[in-house]
Protein backbone atom coordinates (compact mmCIF):
# COMPACT_ATOMS: atom_id res chain seq x y z
CA UNK A 1 0.00 0.00 0.00
CA UNK A 2 2.81 2.38 0.94
CA UNK A 3 4.58 1.51 -2.24
CA UNK A 4 1.47 2.24 -4.21
CA UNK A 5 1.02 5.56 -2.48
CA UNK A 6 4.58 6.54 -3.21
CA UNK A 7 4.24 5.55 -6.82
CA UNK A 8 0.97 7.42 -7.13
CA UNK A 9 2.41 10.51 -5.56
CA UNK A 10 5.45 10.43 -7.77
CA UNK A 11 3.39 9.80 -10.83
CA UNK A 12 1.06 12.67 -10.05
CA UNK A 13 3.98 14.96 -9.47
CA UNK A 14 5.57 13.88 -12.72
CA UNK A 15 2.32 14.57 -14.54
CA UNK A 16 1.91 18.00 -13.01
CA UNK A 17 5.46 19.05 -13.73
CA UNK A 18 5.32 17.59 -17.20
CA UNK A 19 2.19 19.56 -17.94
CA UNK A 20 3.76 22.70 -16.48
CA UNK A 21 6.89 22.32 -18.53
CA UNK A 22 4.91 21.60 -21.64
CA UNK A 23 2.77 24.65 -21.09
CA UNK A 24 5.83 26.80 -20.45
CA UNK A 25 7.49 25.51 -23.59
CA UNK A 26 4.53 26.66 -25.65
CA UNK A 27 3.69 29.80 -23.75
CA UNK A 28 7.22 31.17 -23.50
CA UNK A 29 8.54 29.91 -26.78
CA UNK A 30 11.36 32.08 -28.06
CA UNK A 31 11.12 32.69 -31.75
CA UNK A 32 14.65 32.70 -33.08
CA UNK A 33 16.13 33.04 -36.49
CA UNK A 34 17.51 29.93 -38.05
CA UNK A 35 21.18 29.57 -37.28
CA UNK A 36 22.32 30.43 -40.77
CA UNK A 37 20.48 33.74 -40.62
CA UNK A 38 22.10 34.59 -37.31
CA UNK A 39 25.54 33.73 -38.60
CA UNK A 40 24.93 35.65 -41.78
CA UNK A 41 23.94 38.68 -39.73
CA UNK A 42 27.25 38.57 -37.91
CA UNK A 43 29.37 38.30 -41.05
CA UNK A 44 30.44 41.67 -42.46
CA UNK A 45 28.77 41.17 -45.85
CA UNK A 46 31.71 42.33 -47.87
CA UNK A 47 31.09 39.34 -50.14
CA UNK A 48 34.82 39.21 -50.71
CA UNK A 49 35.12 35.47 -50.90
CA UNK A 50 38.34 35.43 -48.88
CA UNK A 51 36.87 32.60 -46.84
CA UNK A 52 36.83 30.42 -49.90
CA UNK A 53 33.08 30.63 -50.37
CA UNK A 54 31.36 32.77 -52.97
CA UNK A 55 29.95 35.32 -50.56
CA UNK A 56 28.95 35.67 -46.96
CA UNK A 57 25.77 33.64 -47.08
CA UNK A 58 27.48 30.48 -48.38
CA UNK A 59 30.12 30.84 -45.68
CA UNK A 60 27.37 31.23 -43.09
CA UNK A 61 25.87 28.00 -44.34
CA UNK A 62 29.27 26.34 -44.18
CA UNK A 63 29.76 27.51 -40.59
CA UNK A 64 26.36 26.17 -39.70
CA UNK A 65 27.51 22.87 -41.13
CA UNK A 66 30.63 22.88 -39.01
CA UNK A 67 33.23 24.86 -40.89
CA UNK A 68 35.80 26.94 -39.00
CA UNK A 69 34.71 30.34 -37.79
CA UNK A 70 38.05 32.00 -38.40
CA UNK A 71 38.07 32.45 -42.14
CA UNK A 72 36.77 35.98 -42.41
CA UNK A 73 39.57 38.55 -42.61
CA UNK A 74 37.32 41.60 -43.13
CA UNK A 75 35.37 40.76 -40.01
CA UNK A 76 38.50 40.26 -37.96
CA UNK A 77 38.62 39.32 -34.32
CA UNK A 78 35.32 40.98 -33.50
CA UNK A 79 33.40 38.76 -35.88
CA UNK A 80 35.17 35.65 -34.66
CA UNK A 81 34.29 36.58 -31.10
CA UNK A 82 30.64 37.06 -31.95
CA UNK A 83 30.52 33.80 -33.89
CA UNK A 84 32.18 31.96 -31.04
CA UNK A 85 29.62 33.42 -28.66
CA UNK A 86 26.73 32.45 -30.89
CA UNK A 87 27.92 28.95 -31.55
CA UNK A 88 29.33 28.31 -28.12
CA UNK A 89 32.78 27.41 -29.37
CA UNK A 90 36.24 28.68 -28.52
CA UNK A 91 37.29 31.74 -30.52
CA UNK A 92 40.19 30.91 -32.81
CA UNK A 93 42.78 33.30 -34.14
CA UNK A 94 42.20 34.55 -37.65
CA UNK A 95 43.12 31.93 -40.18
CA UNK A 96 44.98 34.11 -42.59
CA UNK A 97 48.09 35.74 -41.26
CA UNK A 98 46.89 39.08 -42.48
CA UNK A 99 45.91 41.52 -39.80
CA UNK A 100 42.70 43.45 -40.12
CA UNK A 101 43.61 46.25 -42.42
CA UNK A 102 42.33 49.77 -42.16
CA UNK A 103 39.12 50.32 -44.01
CA UNK A 104 39.66 50.88 -47.69
CA UNK A 105 37.60 51.49 -50.77
CA UNK A 106 38.44 50.88 -54.40
CA UNK A 107 39.25 53.82 -56.60
CA UNK A 108 39.56 53.72 -60.37
CA UNK A 109 42.12 56.02 -61.97
CA UNK A 110 39.69 57.12 -64.54
CA UNK A 111 42.02 58.39 -67.24
CA UNK A 112 43.65 55.00 -67.39
CA UNK A 113 40.49 52.94 -67.48
CA UNK A 114 39.95 51.26 -70.84
CA UNK A 115 36.35 50.32 -70.16
CA UNK A 116 36.81 46.58 -70.20
CA UNK A 117 33.97 45.90 -67.67
CA UNK A 118 36.02 43.23 -65.97
CA UNK A 119 35.85 44.96 -62.63
CA UNK A 120 32.11 45.42 -63.01
CA UNK A 121 31.71 41.71 -63.36
CA UNK A 122 33.99 41.05 -60.43
CA UNK A 123 32.20 43.39 -58.03
CA UNK A 124 29.94 41.34 -55.76
CA UNK A 125 27.81 44.29 -54.73
CA UNK A 126 27.44 46.14 -58.05
CA UNK A 127 29.36 49.10 -56.70
CA UNK A 128 31.10 49.86 -60.00
CA UNK A 129 29.28 51.69 -62.74
CA UNK A 130 30.31 51.99 -66.37
CA UNK A 131 29.69 50.48 -69.73
CA UNK A 132 31.80 48.71 -72.26
CA UNK A 133 34.49 51.03 -73.56
CA UNK A 134 33.20 53.72 -71.25
CA UNK A 135 35.11 54.87 -68.26
CA UNK A 136 34.13 53.08 -65.03
CA UNK A 137 33.92 54.44 -61.56
CA UNK A 138 33.40 53.11 -58.04
CA UNK A 139 30.48 54.20 -55.88
CA UNK A 140 32.60 54.71 -52.78
CA UNK A 141 29.63 54.48 -50.40
CA UNK A 142 28.69 51.06 -51.67
CA UNK A 143 32.19 49.65 -51.94
CA UNK A 144 32.90 47.03 -49.30
CA UNK A 145 36.64 47.11 -49.87
CA UNK A 146 36.75 43.44 -50.84
CA UNK A 147 39.64 43.81 -53.31
CA UNK A 148 37.97 41.56 -55.86
CA UNK A 149 38.09 44.15 -58.64
CA UNK A 150 41.80 44.85 -58.36
CA UNK A 151 43.07 41.61 -59.82
CA UNK A 152 40.89 41.44 -62.93
CA UNK A 153 41.86 44.91 -64.09
CA UNK A 154 44.07 44.45 -67.15
CA UNK A 155 45.67 47.85 -66.85
CA UNK A 156 46.05 48.00 -63.09
CA UNK A 157 44.14 51.20 -62.73
CA UNK A 158 42.29 50.28 -59.51
CA UNK A 159 43.74 51.35 -56.19
CA UNK A 160 42.52 50.51 -52.71
CA UNK A 161 42.55 53.81 -50.85
CA UNK A 162 42.15 54.07 -47.07
CA UNK A 163 38.96 55.88 -46.10
CA UNK A 164 39.86 59.39 -45.03
CA UNK A 165 39.23 60.47 -41.46
CA UNK A 166 36.38 62.91 -41.23
CA UNK A 167 35.07 65.10 -38.46
CA UNK A 168 31.89 62.99 -38.28
CA UNK A 169 33.71 59.72 -37.96
CA UNK A 170 36.47 60.90 -35.69
CA UNK A 171 37.04 58.50 -32.81
CA UNK A 172 38.13 61.00 -30.19
CA UNK A 173 41.71 59.94 -30.32
CA UNK A 174 43.17 62.98 -28.61
CA UNK A 175 46.66 61.55 -28.68
CA UNK A 176 46.66 61.60 -32.45
CA UNK A 177 46.11 65.35 -32.73
CA UNK A 178 49.25 66.97 -34.06
CA UNK A 179 50.20 69.77 -31.73
CA UNK A 180 51.76 72.74 -33.39
CA UNK A 181 55.01 73.89 -31.88
CA UNK A 182 55.26 77.64 -31.52
CA UNK A 183 58.54 79.54 -31.16
Amino acid sequence: MTLLNALLALGTLALIFGALLGYAAIRFKVESDPLVEQIDDILPQTQCGQCGYPGCRPYAEAIANGDDINKCPPGGEATIKKLAELLGVEPKPLNAAQEVAIKRVAFIREDECIGCTKCIQACPVDAIVGASKQMHTVIADECTGCDLCVEPCPVDCIDMIPVADSVERWKWDLQAIPVKMVE
Binding site: L43, Q45, Q47, R57, V125, D126, E142
Partner: peptide
Protein backbone atom coordinates in the same frame (compact mmCIF):
# COMPACT_ATOMS: atom_id res chain seq x y z
CA UNK B 1 26.81 45.39 -44.37
CA UNK B 2 23.07 45.16 -44.65
CA UNK B 3 23.09 47.23 -47.80
CA UNK B 4 25.96 45.23 -49.22
CA UNK B 5 24.08 42.07 -48.50
CA UNK B 6 20.97 43.41 -50.19
CA UNK B 7 22.97 44.49 -53.20
CA UNK B 8 24.77 41.16 -53.36
Amino acid sequence: AEQAKARF
